[in-house]
Simulated scan of single mutants.
Amino acid sequence: MKVADFDFDLPPELIAVRPASPRESARLLRVRESGMADLTIADLPGELRAGDLLVLNDTKVIPARLEGTIGEAHVELNLIRAVDSRTWECLARPGRRFRPGVTVVFGDLTARVLVKDPEGTITLEFDRAGPDLMAALDVVGTMPLPPYIARKRAPDAQDRTDYQTAFAAREGAVAAPTASLHLTPELLARLGAMGVERAMVTLHVGAGTFLPVKVEDTADHKMHAEWGEVGAAAAEAINRARAEGRRVVAVGTTALRLIESAARDRDRVEPFADWTDIFITPGFRFRAADLLLTNFHLPKSTLVMLVSAFAGFDRVKAAYGHAIDKGYRFYSYGDACLFDRVEPKA
């Protein structure tokens, strides 16, 4: 398909720079074959039923935005992908300062430039690894807000809470699984009390989720890779729900991409711990999820393509038009929509 097919005009005032407060007050557009309903996240229990299985991404966003110095020069960078426990790829500016071999200082944390890629990424080796590095980043770093928020305001202390899910557990993401930002402990308790089950998976969301698609045809796009894990218990819970005719609800495109990666070329989800660069566009056969809870995404993004594959191109186009007309809030801190899966036409 042409990338231009996934474009739309979005009034800039609809880009949310803070989440709804309280979180459950965010709007929820329920999209069914029979039509659309304007709800709030607090209404989600009415759209689910006993036996439904929520698949949640428990990744934890690290403070991946850093400001430091090279010599006397001020520099900024965003970590984008872990190479190993002490080495990260990043985007940095001003790029001319990051020559291989130079040392970058972030308070009492330092790093050495290993590689400067011709395409603009920098590879840094830090002076500590694993939990020690995570602890240092927690002191010197700030939350890596998406570009469309960072252009409007700087990160602040409130983002430490706002840009993190209530069940974040495994450090490694440099972007939040944003649909999950709506789910409070109280709402999850209500869902659990009515018999909705949960399965936890991990996909460390990378900054590539915000990269524009620069080709004209989706067939020519190379997808960024992210590391994920579906444990044996989560795989079994998903397979059991499907075998029993219960619905699997993917909370966010990250959870959906991961479980579809674990079910690729099969009719069941297998345990998975690897990098995935799965690129889902209309025509894709979904094997793991029946419903998708997700936010409203960037024009011409891989996420809009994924949602269109899941719920149907025309239905998603109509839903986004309705959301814009009704003043829904878009992107990471914005409102959400809940779609049923539509089978692709033969």
Rank of each mutant, 00 (worst) to 15 (best):
D38I: 09
K60A: 15
L54T: 02
D58F: 05
L54H: 00
T40Q: 15
T59D: 12
G51V: 08
A37C: 01
T69K: 14
L39F: 04
I70V: 14
A37K: 13
E76C: 01
G46T: 04
I70A: 02
G68I: 14
V31T: 09
R27H: 14
A42N: 08
L39D: 02
R30P: 01
N57Y: 10
E72M: 01
A42R: 13
E33Y: 00
L48H: 13
E76I: 08
G71F: 02
V31F: 07
I62S: 11
N57D: 03
V55Y: 08
E72A: 11
L77T: 11
R27I: 06
D52F: 04
V55D: 06
T40P: 10
S25D: 11
V31C: 12
L28R: 03
L56C: 10
A26N: 10
L29H: 11
L54G: 01
V31S: 02
L44M: 13
A37W: 02
A50C: 07
A42K: 12
R49Y: 03
L29T: 10
L56I: 09
E72Q: 00
I70E: 04
E47A: 14
V31P: 00
R65V: 08
L28V: 15
L29I: 15
L39E: 07
K60Y: 02
L44F: 06
L56M: 14
E33H: 02
R27S: 06
D58L: 07
L53M: 00
G71L: 01
G51E: 01
E76Q: 11
K60P: 00
D52I: 07
D38G: 05
S25M: 12
G68Q: 15
